[in-house]
């Protein structure tokens, strides 16, 4: 069944009078067009077209992401550059001691999370493995300011590249687990991810515009809390909203869900760091 993108009409009515910086369909960041709409990957049975969360935001919020100065996340990317070059731990090393060119991370973000040595790893795991094993430093908190600044910096190197996670082979069991979580109702409100983000995207939940719950823009700067938010931090927020006990950030459940959600966005451009409500 083809969903007829009802939010396009809603946006036109609701925000038509406001200053819309650009056609809400075309996301141009610093002059480069990013893909915000794609045919759904074949494994998605109930959705034909996938849309970046950017498409569900108001003109003013959308505009913040089109310019790397207006995007408030970029001040945290600057902090990430500082963190990246800062020596920490017993080995006297910084991230930059091994990773001399940050640009070399181009292509990493679209592939994560991925399976390494039989384990599913997110970017946060890769960062902390470097910190504990190579630098002799303490691991960073999964959603702390240092971590999100650095994951934003690393993600930015792949901006514009299509999400392309592996879901077969080693990854298959993790992906299946993530899919199961996506469709499992939990919490006092007895809701699954799919109830909002598959069955009802494009409609309003009170005054909020429900997106497809795509994660191609994470870490994302939210106007709500004026800081960078990790994918797992956002999952936690969703679970609290449905009165469920959230899984642990960095735990097996959220990593599996991250893989499954990433796979629902195959083909959308990496927007890290994006701006959302």
């Amino acid at each position: 069944m083809m969903k007829s993108a009802p939010w396009v009409a809603l946006v036109a009515m609701g925000f038509g009078g406001a200053a819309v910086a650009q056609d809400s369909k075309a996301l141009n960041v610093e002059g480069t067009a990013l893909v915000t709409e794609a045919a759904a990957p074949s494994h998605m049975e109930n959705v034909d077209t996938i849309y970046s969360g950017w498409r569900f935001r108001s003109g003013e919020t959308q505009a913040l992401q089109t310019d790397d100065f207006d995007n408030p996340a970029m001040v945290f990317v600057d902090q990430g550059i500082d963190q990246f070059g800062k020596i920490d731990g017993t080995e006297g090393k910084a991230c930059s001691s091994c990773h001399e060119n940050i640009e070399d991370f181009a292509g990493l973000r679209p592939q994560l999370p991925r399976v390494q040595d039989g384990k599913l790893v997110s970017m946060e795991n890769l960062v902390n493995t470097c910190r504990t094993e190579r630098m002799g430093a303490e691991p960073w908190k999964w959603s702390g300011g240092q971590m999100t600044a650095v994951t934003a910096l690393i993600g930015l190197q792949s901006r514009g590249m299509p999400i392309d996670v592996a879901i077969d082979g080693d990854a298959a069991p993790f992906w299946e687990k993530g899919k199961e979580l996506y469709y499992t109702r939990v919490g006092q409100l007895d809701m699954s991810c799919s109830n909002c983000h598959e069955d009802n995207y494009g409609t309003m939940i009170r005054a909020d515009h429900l997106s497809q719950g795509q994660i191609n823009g994470f870490p994302t700067y939210r106007l709500k809390n004026a800081k960078l938010n990790s994918t797992h931090g956002r999952f936690k927020g969703c679970m609290k909203n449905i009165r469920a006990t959230p899984f642990a950030e960095g735990g097996d459940e959220f990593k599996a869900l991250e893989l499954y959600l990433a796979s629902r966005g195959q083909g959308l451009a990496v927007e890290s760091p994006s701006v959302r409500n």
């Binding site: 100065f69 970029m74 001040v75 600057d78 902090q79 500082d82 300011g145």
Partner: peptide, 9 residues
């Protein structure tokens, strides 16, 4: 903590 200015000129 964490105060960092950014300027575009």
């Amino acid at each position: 903590s964490g105060v960092k200015p950014r300027v575009k000129v």
